[in-house]
Design a protein around this nucleic acid. Structure first.
Lengths: 184, 184
DNA sequence: TCATTCATGTAAGTGGTTACATGATTCA
DNA sequence: TGAATCATGTAACCACTTACATGAATGA
């Protein structure tokens, strides 16, 4: 799937849950999909215009003057479904942290240790955030069916983050051993 | 750290292990860093030129006519070190698979199950690849110090992938339960 | 009244991929 | 002899971010 269409999918997707403004679309993506997706205004507004031009979303007057509420048309819903079914072509990974660690020999064991320790901290923090969100989502009473899928993606985040912590702990140990060897 | 400089870091980094041609730089990045980094020719050659213009790499005649061997100059090595020490600013995540799953309610439980099952398969395959590479790297006798860091990044991949498998298994179970409930 | 949030949009720039063009060398 | 690999580079395009510009509404 062309990567461009993924932005359209994200926008159509959140609009499929309920109608909202462009600003709210961004907030929804940031707050609900933020851990594995992001869109900026510079993407959202033009996408919304294009979607509107193609009749996939409807534009209504919003609560404030100048603001608009967008909602999916039947065409839009069909489009979302068809995008959803297309296999995604993942963007090539570019993990700066791993890149640094790979060249760790040049960085030196101390700096590497620091890097991994920081990564461990931020993963631990992330895990706490996930769990706070989980509690919040679980207590939510609306969108019961959608909730289940939200929790599934959250759970993926939790698994990955716990793995990151375990890896960091293991790596710190290795690094300490080799540092010990180095100091002999 | 500006994202652009990361390409320079990757190029300087592999050149820091040993001098090689632009073509070989790409091969090294693909084969050794491929799981968490990627560069295309369209990036590598211009970067190499820029690095050369700034005196960070030296250009020597390669084995074939028209081919070049690039190696780090002392300036280049210092530059690599300084880039290595700068904190990285991660690109925002865009995980198309999670995006789809988040909108799973629209996709339907069967299609979701299929999606997750596929993800599980590809993770299992990935894990086998990691382990093959691990065996190969471990048997390598050169670059002993560098090897340790390579294995550390490999281990990160293994942890993440095992977590993905565990998550998939858990999720498949959940999905089957809810599908059962749906069918009642 | 003043900061914050809601709201919409554009312009410039960046970082990157893809496809193309070209040609030598190696090896089956 | 012909396919695969080694080798270098460019041009067009793409998705996306950042910064900017603007202004109304809300609420402390």
């Amino acid at each position: 799937m062309a990567r461009q269409k993924q932005t359209e999918l994200a926008v159509l997707g959140v609009l499929g849950v309920q109608p909202m403004s462009g600003y709210a679309v961004r907030a929804a993506i940031r707050d609900q999909l933020g851990f594995f997706w992001s869109e900026s205004f510079g993407q959202i507004y033009p996408t919304l215009s294009a979607l509107h031009a193609r009749g996939e979303v409807e534009k209504h007057d919003g609560a404030r003057p100048g603001s608009s509420l967008y909602s999916l048309t039947p065409t839009g819903r069909r489009r979302m479904l068809s995008l959803l079914e297309q296999p995604d072509s993942p963007t090539p990974r570019r993990d700066g942290f791993m890149l640094r660690l790979f060249f760790g020999r040049s960085l030196g064991p101390d700096a590497c240790r620091e890097l991994v320790a920081q990564a461990r901290e931020s993963a631990a923090h992330q895990l706490a955030v996930y769990q706070a969100i989980r509690a919040q989502v679980e207590s939510e009473t609306e969108y019961a069916e959608h909730k289940a899928y939200w929790l599934i993606t959250l759970s993926a985040g939790e698994h990955t983050t716990r793995a990151a912590i375990a890896w960091a702990d293991e790596t710190l140990e290795k690094l300490d051993l080799s540092r010990g060897a180095y100091l002999l």
